[in-house]
Simulated scan of single mutants.
Amino acid sequence: MWFSLLSCCVLACIALPTNAVDEPKIEILPNTDPLKVLEGGKLEITCRYSTKAEKPNPNSLIIKRLGDRQGDIANAVKLTNLGFDTHRSTSPGATQFDWTIITLKVSKSGSKLTIQDTGRYYCIYEDVYKFFQKDVDVFRVVSPSEVVYNETSSKLSCVPEFSTETTAKDYTLSWSKNGSQSLGDSLKDRYSLEGDMDQNLVISKPGRKWGDLGRYQCVFTFTPSQQTVTNYVDLIGPPKVNEKSFDPSKNYVQGDNLILKCPVTGYPFPTVSWLRDGVMLNAGDRVVINDEGSVLNGKLTIYSLEFSDKGTYKCMANSTYEGFQSAHATTIVRVKDRLAALWPFLGIVAEVIILCIIIFIYEKRRGKQMEDEADSPDYPANTQDHRTDEVRQRNVRT
């Protein structure tokens, strides 16, 4: 009797934690609460339900939203009725004793995600497990996302606007350029931050350095969760070609390779078109057009130049921003024969040869003329020296 009673106690002690462990589990991801999302960005929530039930119903797992966080959950609305995209999956266990996981993922992005999506989200299975909830704060930045540079100063703004349902609005704001480049590295001492939360970035004389153009980031860091949300503001400017870096003319020899790079700047990054004598160049067997850094089609290569490749080449830079005009630079390409360098030398050699022939003919004719004169009968063989006779006569008279 005592043995039976002891056995029952042991079995009861074993069964209690086992049942506790086998209780269904439900969770909502991500773990950050409240979750901060930028309007026009992407909101993604995952609800995961784990159970050891033999036949769980995947369709019983739902996510609802309640706009008024203090309201009754009974008034919450399914996200499938609010324009969210859904993806449901089930991972059944190998046996009936393994966990079965049902996953429901909902998402909304782009223009669909607005500040009205702020609220309290619930992860529910068969209207039983509704204690898993998450607050989502969707906010917008009311400042323009694009600013056309001004030669005197350009002002970039990042002013947030929150829903009335948002409870935690504590944040700090920081600025950077191109993802990680600090403002001190790129702008030196030509910038200042204005506003209570450094919401305005003022750049003085951005035209002085064309590299000031580009994408800037204002990063919100919310406390106490330390969640960060990044907003982008573009400082844009028209295409500009540095003609000093583009030689006005180039000389090549037949068979050489021609390489031209268009020294263009601007943001958005321009697209380059190449023309020869006003005719558009297209990639072919010998013509290769590649991107040069961030500039599309910024590099032109022509292999094994021919005489027909000579002409006036132009790189035409166009911006995707409709309000900007195109920019261009030209260079004259001359193609010479491979043996062109030998022609001056051959000319000198030919002149020397002709001069030698002339001298040779002249000397030959002159020698023959002298021989003919020597053989002539009129040529005096002996000539009397009269000066000797005069000297003798003078001596006699003396």
Rank of each mutant, 00 (worst) to 15 (best):
E165V: 01
Y362I: 04
P248L: 12
T331F: 02
Q226G: 08
K25V: 03
K42L: 11
D247Q: 08
V229H: 01
Q369S: 07
S4I: 09
W175F: 07
L275R: 13
T331I: 12
S50V: 03
D234M: 00
C315H: 06
G255W: 06
T301I: 11
F84N: 04
A20H: 12
P56F: 00
D72H: 07
V233H: 00
L43V: 05
D385W: 01
C8Q: 12
A329D: 05
I63W: 10
R392W: 14
R334Y: 14
N231Y: 08
D256F: 00
S176T: 01
I203D: 05
F131R: 03
R286C: 15
A341R: 14
S326N: 14
K169S: 06
G67Q: 11
E306F: 07
T383G: 05
L339V: 06
P263Q: 03
E161W: 02
N81Q: 08
L187E: 03
V233C: 01
A74M: 06
D189N: 14
L82V: 00
G214E: 00
Q325F: 05
E371Y: 02
E161H: 01
G119T: 03
W99G: 00
R397F: 10
T95M: 09
Q393D: 15
S204M: 08
Y122Q: 05
V335N: 03
W343N: 13
Y232H: 03
R88C: 03
L82I: 00
M280K: 15
V279I: 13
E306D: 13
E27G: 10
D198R: 15
D98R: 11
I332F: 09
K130E: 06
D389R: 13
R208I: 05
D185L: 04
D234L: 00
P344Q: 09
I348F: 07
N231S: 14
I124E: 09
G110N: 09
V147P: 00
F3G: 12
S154Y: 02
Y122P: 04
K314C: 13
F345E: 03
V253I: 12
F246A: 07
D337H: 12
D198N: 15
V241M: 10
E373L: 11
T51F: 02
Y313S: 14
L5R: 10
I236F: 02
Q393I: 15
K177Q: 07
R190S: 14
P224N: 08
V148Y: 00
T46D: 05
V241E: 06
L113M: 04
G93D: 02
N57Y: 08
F324M: 02
N200W: 04
I115G: 01
I45M: 09
I62W: 02
D117E: 11
Y191L: 07
N75S: 12
T18C: 11
N81Y: 04
S294E: 11
E126F: 02
D198I: 03
N81A: 07
W99R: 13
W2D: 13
S91A: 11
T114K: 10
N31L: 10
D170C: 03
S180A: 05
L193E: 00
T383E: 15
V142A: 01
L11T: 08
T320Q: 09
P239V: 08
D375Y: 04
N200H: 14
C123L: 09
A329V: 13
K105I: 08
L6M: 06
Q254I: 06
E126D: 08
F360N: 08
G298C: 03
L29F: 12
L11N: 07
H328K: 08
I289N: 09
D285T: 13
Q96D: 09
